[in-house]
Simulated assay, not measured.
Amino acid sequence: MNHLLRKNYLGIDVSKLWFDVSLLPIIDHVKQPIITERFDNTTSGMTAFKAWLKSTGVTLDQHSLLVIENTGVYHRLLWGFCSKYNLPLYIGNAAHIKWSLGITRGKSDVIDSVRLCQYCYKQSDELKATPALNPVFMKLKDLMTSRSRLVTQLHSTKNYIKELQCSNDKVLQAILEKAHQAAIEGIKKSIIQIEVLIEQIIKDDTAIYKNYLLIKSVPGIGHLTALYIICCTNNFASKVTGKQLASYAGVVPFEHSSGTSIKGRNRVHKMANKDLKKMLHLCALTAIKYYPEFRQYFDRKKAEGKNGMLVLNAIRNKIILRAVAVVNKRQPYVNNLNMAA
């Protein structure tokens, strides 16, 4: 009996309560009708999903590929399922997938899953499976997110108290400050507790700790930026390049011209991780202030008539490229300027 050549392309639209699956089987290079189904986004739903995959002939190996959009939290059960059973999974950026589909009409959970399924089929040669879910890494990422939110709340409360000084009398101001003081102290305490847990996780995980130390060796990069880069890259499990990470951070300038009518200067793309970009901006300012290599570069470019923000962006780009380089080479950063001196 001849074995049929079969490929399975799946697209899943994930929501908080359920997920919709669309399956496109390709048998002997011939497309079969797309099959759709809905499952609860729960542990029992994953069990039913596994049984459905078996009943539809989907193999949990390299002959299958599943595509989902990054939803932050809601797709984690699916990610864990695929990691456990070695089902190749690609977690894509929602905006990138949407733009690649071109003009579309109509929207529902089922329609979105069908579109993801079609995207999976068309882009399968270029899609690289996302690394398996690392529970330790996800714990670190959740702690970093929680810390960031608490810091935002702390700044918001402090700013609110300062703004009231312009309109309140001293007695009322004292009452409000006292009322908010417990909240402020509570947030500070929570931030400290989270930072202790983060530090413990880093030290307990050898792979994360080594990359953390390597990234911190780059001039300008501090504790939080090193951790954030690790979270953004899944601890470099996906082998991200320096150019890819710089583009993700929004510090890579792209050409902006067309024929003779549009001749704009090179510009960075507005679609970027703005938190990482802000961190890199502070890293660049620190590098200019404390490291002669970057100070001299900044002064030289300014003397050539370059715009200050353009030079700062170039330094942000240099910093992120070097962060990836030290991780890939497994060697800490070496300041060639100091060696020459």
Rank of each mutant, 00 (worst) to 15 (best):
M309Y: 14
Q118H: 11
I198D: 08
I288E: 09
I215D: 06
L337T: 14
S55I: 05
Q173A: 03
P292V: 11
A48L: 14
G242D: 12
L140E: 01
Q32P: 00
C82R: 03
D205M: 00
A287D: 10
S217G: 05
F39I: 09
I161N: 10
Y297R: 11
M309K: 14
F294T: 09
K216Q: 15
Q200M: 10
K278G: 03
L23V: 08
P88C: 10
Y85E: 07
K139C: 10
M46K: 05
P131E: 04
L89F: 05
A179L: 01
P25Y: 06
L77T: 03
R267W: 03
A341N: 14
G308F: 07
I320M: 02
D299A: 15
L5Y: 04
G308N: 11
V73L: 07
L78R: 02
L282H: 11
I26C: 11
M309A: 10
L5G: 00
M144D: 04
S22T: 03
N234E: 12
Q173G: 14
S15Q: 04
Y160W: 14
Y212E: 07
R267P: 00
G242E: 13
L213K: 13
I191K: 02
L4C: 01
G186Q: 09
K188V: 03
F298A: 10
D125Q: 12
H256Q: 12
Q173F: 09
P88T: 12
I103A: 06
L4I: 05
V21N: 06
T36H: 07
K141A: 03
C120P: 02
R115K: 14
D109G: 04
K178I: 01
G308M: 05
T145G: 13
L245C: 07
A272Q: 12
E199K: 14
D275Y: 09
Q123S: 10
S44G: 01
N234C: 04
T47Q: 15
K263P: 01
E304I: 02
H96Q: 14
Y209E: 14
N338P: 00
I320S: 05
I91C: 02
F236N: 08
K239S: 15
V171C: 01
F298D: 09
S261W: 03
L224F: 06
K289T: 11
G242Q: 06
F39W: 09
K122S: 10
